[in-house]
Design a protein around this nucleic acid. Sequence first.
DNA 1: CGTTACACCTGAGGGC
DNA 2: TGCCCTCAGGTGTAAC
Length: 292
Amino acid sequence: MPELPEVEVTRRGIAPLLEKRTIAAVHTTASSYFFLTPPRILRKRLRGRRVLALTRHGKYLRASLDSGETLVLHLGMTGQLFAAGATSVRLLSARARAALEPEEQPAFRPDLHTHLRLSFRDGGPEVVFRDVRKFGKVLLLAPGGTDPRVEKLGVDALAATGEELFAAARRRRIPIKTLLLDQSVLAGIGNIYADEGLFLAGVRPTRPSRRVSRARCRAVAAACRRVMLRSIETGGSSISDYVSPSGSDGAYQDERRVYARTGRLCRNGCGARIRRVVLGQRATHYCPKCQT
DNA sequence: CGTTACACCTGAGGGC
DNA sequence: TGCCCTCAGGTGTAAC
């Protein structure tokens, strides 16, 4: 589920439930490549630690700890980070209480996909990390420590000006869509927002990067930023797999313009139908008339 | 070095 | 009902 907007919405929701709280216990599943830091190390090192702040860079979340260590999280394709199991909400700060959604209150039953679960000394809600496909990642960085995955990230896509994109695009032959997905160029753009951003900018995803002008690179970066900000505003709902009780898929239908609309009419009213191709093993959608 | 193919996992949905 | 296939919002790595 997560690209930059979903990760940011998750960060805003979970930050009040992590920050200023002290970890009492850590539960994990067995060692697997999901854990870049072995679970037994996590259990030992996280206990008694106080979380200072939760920040985001691209699709990565970083929780800084009072020990100087940093807990790095990536949600992969199916990762979910949420609060659960409040046992005594009154012990929480007003800020933390306000962040608790009513729907998150019901008891949560950890299952085999619940890879990390943090409980806190205040007895309040636990913070849970579930991930069905295990493409997500958990890593504990030593004070001042680094990791190549985080180090290689380019400028966060929300802060990008378009110059960064143009600088990377100049000499490259790969499709501009593929370049947008390269996290070392702009960090945070995923498959949906790459397609949506390119549509808004009127740029065909298959176009070789070096054939995209500086002005169009600026337009693409701005369009990606715009569509992602819009998604954050609506709580990430425009791209989540959330299904309302009525059975519809909420704002998703209304917001997306090309993604997963293969064969349907272009929203610009140009009369053309949305086309689907595969670029870099990723489904790619565009309007053959509006995007050049 | 740039680019592409594949691997890592599980579950949902369609066709038969 | 069950089987087999394809597809999925990500990314590290091997190989050309």
